[in-house]
Design a protein around this nucleic acid. Structure first.
Lengths: 217, 217
DNA sequence: CATTATTGTGACCGGTGGTCATAAAGTCAA
DNA sequence: TTGACTTTATGACCACCGGTCACAATAATG
């Protein structure tokens, strides 16, 4: 039982090699043009072999995207749960941000797989797997905001509403920064600004109109 | 000069018909699978004709995306410039939101064309055209925030920083809402939440940590 | 070693975006 | 009306892609 029969271990290894080969080719800027045949060549296997390991090219993308998601999850798990809510929130964002920074290839594939156009043509099994991981990723933030509401740091609004804003801003920022529209400010500063923005959006979510004591400026 | 020679007018008309035909087919959920041959059939022209009007299939996507952008621009221009900053900001967001709501097809194509993977394979000419429109779209928000800073409504931070948060949140929200992850709340409520969130993020951008007087809740 | 089960392979297929020689249609001077 | 000439329309054709499958190679079993 602990022995997946030696042969199947080697089989699994081949699968990894194929994913690795794909990732190497995806470093190129024209990564969307990489063909299955090229992946096969890079992995030193026949093209048919690829389809013994993955049902489709999209499945390769999906597996890489899930690898990326699991990296985020792993990065979340090392955050000290004793820290105050705001600090944990900060570290949470920083963790996700860093993972996105850590591998341009995985980041790109992840974004590619996040489009609903991609998901709609994914097999139900793989789609379910992805959604499950995504739920795991969302949970820490979910709990964090709930805790913040309990402690009176965030306004007592429905969780869904608070999450919506925070998620939107983070998600949008990731895409904006990596799309290269804005090249001047560096990444770390972006994260700091984003954190400020999101925390302000959460904390002052119910009182945006009464201006703070700045009208004198 | 005012007469583009009758013939060329009909030629331009054909181009429009092709775009219209494409848009009809893009209503389908599997719109990414629509082929050039199908568009030709829908437009009642030969496939080769399509390539007399558009350099590539991507060019068709791009033209539709730009149509969408021009709709946003038109919607912006009817906002009363006399209104106070915050109200104009609200209407600005509402305008963009409504355009996104108004046509699922155009919205989808627009998102598709926003991916950097798409832009990188676009012809420099068309890309430049798109960027120009995007700059026009961004300008009202840019000016609005600058005005808000002048009036002391928003903190005196660099425009780029304030814009970054606002843009991120809006962009992310659009994608989140339309991806169908969250199905319960209706669109109008989403917009209201988002507006609150963004305004709070802007107004309180520099003082997120000193908690407001709510710790009693 | 023979038998069986599993994994690897590349020739092959349907279909796609894109091209191009040719046909059709329009324009205009005489 | 005609005929020379320019612009627009067309579908057969091409290269290439993702995906399949009959068969070869290899490993496990007895």
């Amino acid at each position: 039982m602990t022995t997946p029969s030696r042969k199947s271990r080697q089989f699994a290894l081949r699968g990894q090699e194929i994913l690795d080969a794909a990732l190497v080719l995806f470093q190129s800027d024209s990564w969307e043009d990489v063909t299955v045949a090229e992946i096969a060549q890079q992995a030193e296997v026949g093209k048919g072999t690829i389809y013994k390991h993955f049902a489709s090219k999209d499945e390769i993308y999906a597996q890489l995207a899930m690898l990326f998601q699991r990296q985020i999850l792993a990065r979340f798990s090392i955050i000290d749960p004793q820290l105050p809510v705001i600090e944990r929130f900060r570290q949470n964002m920083c963790a996700a941000w860093e993972v996105h920074l850590s591998s341009k290839e995985l980041h790109r594939v992840f974004l590619y797989c996040s489009r609903s156009g991609f998901r709609s043509r994914l097999s139900p099994a793989t789609l379910g797997e992805m959604l499950a991981i995504e739920q795991q990723i969302a949970q820490p933030t979910h709990l964090l905001i709930a805790e913040g509401v309990e402690q009176g740091i965030f306004p007592p609004k429905p969780l869904a509403k608070l999450l919506f804003g925070a998620q939107s801003a983070f998600w949008g920022a990731i895409q904006l920064v990596w799309s290269g529209y804005l090249g001047d400010i560096d990444q770390a500063e972006h994260l700091d600004d984003l954190t400020r923005f999101i925390l302000a959006g959460l904390i002052y979510h119910d009182q945006p109109i009464d201006l703070p004591g700045r009208a004198s400026a």
